Amino acid sequence: MPPSRPTVLLTGATGVIGAGLLPALADRYEVVCLVHRRRPEGAIDCVPADLTAEDLGLSGRQRRDLAARVDVVVHSAALTAFAPPDLTAFDDINAEGTRRILRLAENAGVPVVLLSSAAAVFEAAGDDLTARSMRAYSHSKRRAEELAAQSGLPVAVVRPALLFAARSATAVPQHQFPHALFTAMLQGRTGGLPIDADHWCDILPMETLVDYVVALTEAQLRGDVGAPGIHWATAGPARLTAGDMERACLALLEELGRPAAGQLLSAPDPARPRTHGMARLAQLGFQPPTRPALPTDLRRLLPAQPTRGEVLEALAHNVRRCAGLPAELAAQPSGS
């Protein structure tokens, strides 16, 4: 008997975003996961595949079976490493992998929700490895969006900002920029990071992104004419500054009984340009106050845009998790 609910084909279910999307989508739809190495926790129906292989490494019969079963594709698989050994891996996975997913969707005649990145529209300056890696990532996401536009399919492209870990996550993604930054700041090294306190970085609570993608998936299934196209999923005017992050880390260090000897940030020194490490990554990841906030489209499908208070609460929770506090203690920010 065929399933009574629509079927979503989900990629990247073991990734930071996909791990949040899987249970949220499974609450409403049948979900088939394309998996590479690991079976996602909670997944029921999995199909082994490879984004770097032609036809995703699937046999003709497997492709026909998927085409007959699925009603929409949610493509969240991507390479997001800081600096992989081979920078061409970004294009192989993020762009060419998207091309193969789009071909599968075309064969199935179904719409697509494509998780891209706000980085698709930015260009990191510099010739150091960190800058070149960020450019390679940005270019791969931009090319994936171009392939989606050329496909002729109804593709909804989501450009998320950086993301806080979900409150339900068993562990924070230490390899992701925000959490690597918080971990570095929690070392309490005075003036350790050369970032201006008024420079900003857009970080969105994971739960907000998941809610938006689920709502967008529903809109694609309904055939809403406004669903295809670009969707910015950002904190927008609720963006955080480096000073906000510094204060959250200083407050927790004080609470834990190991206060920092001074401020954690220092003004960048033009005479000592940074070319690698967290300092360089942070300098590229933060924007000056003269640059306007990122656009946001969350109100298109959600009842409200996250407030600054909600984003600060997510910051406090994530900082506490980066300090190694268990989830139940991390849920009690300083002063509670």
Rank of each mutant, 00 (worst) to 15 (best):
V70G: 01
L129I: 14
V32I: 12
T190H: 03
V72I: 11
L193T: 03
L221Q: 13
R37P: 13
S117I: 09
L129T: 09
P40C: 04
A271W: 12
E30H: 07
F164K: 00
V213M: 09
E310I: 04
A89R: 07
H276A: 14
A124E: 06
I203A: 11
R320H: 00
C46M: 14
R38M: 07
R37E: 14
L181F: 07
E54M: 12
P270N: 08
L129Q: 15
A149N: 08
A233M: 10
A105C: 10
G277D: 04
S168M: 03
A331S: 02
Y212F: 10
L114H: 05
M245L: 12
H276S: 12
R38A: 07
D224H: 11
T241Y: 05
R63F: 13
P84I: 00
V73P: 04
Q220R: 15
Q187H: 04
N94M: 12
A197E: 11
Q220E: 09
P40I: 05
S116L: 08
A293F: 00
P23T: 02
R159C: 06
H179S: 03
F182L: 11
L22G: 00
N318Y: 00
L256S: 06
V74Y: 01
L163F: 06
L301R: 12
T88Y: 04
W200G: 05
R5S: 06
A169N: 12
E255L: 09
E255M: 04
G324P: 03
R167H: 01
A251Y: 03
L298R: 00
L204G: 08
I17R: 01
L115I: 12
A78P: 02
A83Y: 05
Q174G: 14
P85K: 06
D86V: 13
A144I: 13
H199E: 10
A78S: 12
G20V: 03
A131L: 12
I17N: 00
V31W: 01
G277I: 14
A279Q: 14
E207A: 08
R63M: 15
A215P: 11
A148Q: 07
A184F: 03
P6D: 07
A26T: 03
R320M: 01
Q283S: 06
D211R: 11
G152Y: 02
L66H: 09
D55P: 10
L87S: 03
A124Q: 02
A184E: 10
A49Y: 04
A120D: 15
Q332H: 00
G60H: 07
P84N: 02
I195C: 04
A238S: 15
I203T: 04
R103I: 08
E123Y: 15
L79I: 00
P84F: 03
L256E: 06
T98D: 10
I230G: 04
Q187R: 15
N107Y: 13
V158F: 08
F182A: 01
L58N: 11
R300L: 02
H317G: 02
R143F: 07
H139F: 15
T98I: 14
A251W: 11
I230R: 04
P205Y: 09
A279H: 01
V214H: 00
L281R: 11
T307P: 06
P326E: 02
V172A: 10
R5L: 11
A267V: 09
V72P: 05
D198K: 09
R272H: 10
A171N: 06
R258E: 13
P84D: 10
G97H: 09
P306R: 02
Q287N: 14
